[in-house]
């Protein structure tokens, strides 16, 4: 960083304020303040006079324990965990596999492949949700025909409580696999050729090179992909809303925290909207996402740094 230009040392120079003001004001007013105020609101409840009264952590107790809320809340949380696990188990390994093929120097048309495979990622979730609803529709019979070839019996995938959530998780995986693929690709390309060549001279096979050399070297990216998946998944809304409406059917089988947040805030069917309980759901989501980010920053990254020092 550089010294301030001479002559402007004594009082805070006006031009620095001019440069900073627009970004700081917009960001503080429309992002930081609403986030903090929403956390504050989660500690209040509507009072009979039309205002709000401070109730401490009672809303959170209601959300966790009151039968009117707790069943939906724990259900949404469990579904969200399943949604995340499916992404970690399918999206990220597939992304890594595709990236390792794309990083290989013997692969041809690498740019074409990676550009085409990334295409679904840029489409809006609304379109992706509807496209897959059509593909899976028994009326059209596309999935029926394709699954018959592999020997899987067709089912109303989005209509059954047992299959709806895994199916939608896989649709989301189909859309977003491009992101881990690109991040892993960048990390793999950055590995110096000499390291790989040295290992090959020593007789290491492709499989060994991958597990012993490449994977340890891309661990920082594994962490980034993990935390991005976590934040994205615990904030997901559009896909469920588009394919199953805010009711997250069948029978709330696809309810995620964000759809619960939407319903609690705005109300649905006979239940009235409740801003302070909505803020409470958002508060829980905030805590979960924050915990994920902190685990990444202090668990994963710091551990990697320590290992580097030991090496």
């Amino acid at each position: 960083m550089n010294e301030m230009p001479a002559g402007s040392r004594r009082k805070f120079p006006i031009h620095i304020i001019v440069f900073l003001a627009p970004a700081v004001i917009i960001y503080t007013l429309f992002m930081i303040w609403p986030l903090l105020d929403s956390l504050r609101l989660s500690l209040y409840a509507p009072s009979p006079d039309g205002g709000v009264t401070f109730v401490g952590f009672q809303n959170y107790a209601t959300l966790f324990n009151d039968p009117n809320y707790s069943e939906r809340f724990w259900g949404a949380l469990r579904n969200n965990v399943v949604f995340f696990i499916i992404h970690m188990a399918v999206q990220n390994p597939v992304g890594l596999l595709l990236a390792s093929f794309l990083a290989s120097r013997v692969t041809r048309f690498r740019t074409v492949f990676r550009t085409l495979i990334f295409t679904p990622t840029v489409l809006s979730v609304v379109l992706v949700g509807f496209i897959w609803r059509l593909i899976l529709s028994p009326l059209w019979g596309i999935s029926e025909g394709i699954l018959a070839v592999i020997g899987i019996e067709n089912q109303p995938w989005l209509g059954l409580p047992e299959t709806a959530l895994p199916t939608l998780s896989l649709v989301s995986v189909w859309q977003y696999v491009g992101i881990p693929m690109m991040l892993f690709l960048a990390a793999l390309i950055a590995i110096p050729d000499e390291i790989i060549e040295a290992a090959q001279v020593d007789g290491a096979t492709g499989w060994n090179v991958f597990w012993r050399i490449k994977l340890p070297l891309i661990l920082p990216t594994v962490g980034i992909v993990g935390v991005l998946t976590f934040v994205g998944n615990f904030n997901a809304f559009d896909l469920i809303y588009t394919t199953q409406t805010a009711l997250a059917g069948p029978n709330f089988a696809t309810d995620l925290l964000a759809t619960l947040f939407y319903r609690t805030f705005f109300g649905f069917q006979l239940q009235l909207g409740n801003p302070t309980m909505g803020a409470t759901v958002a508060g829980v989501m905030f805590a979960i996402i924050l915990a994920g980010v902190l685990v990444y920053l202090f668990g994963w990254q710091r551990r990697l740094l320590r290992n580097e020092v030991q090496l």
């Binding site: 429309f30 930081i32 303040w33 609403p34 986030l35 929403s38 964000a258 947040f261 909505g278 905030f286």
Partner: peptide, 21 residues
């Protein structure tokens, strides 16, 4: 650091107060 805080936190979580604002 203050500006960087918003990189990981989704703005969606502030919706209740944001709509009021």
């Amino acid at each position: 650091l203050y500006m960087a805080l918003g990189i990981m936190v989704p703005i969606r979580l502030g919706t209740v107060s944001l709509l009021q604002l």
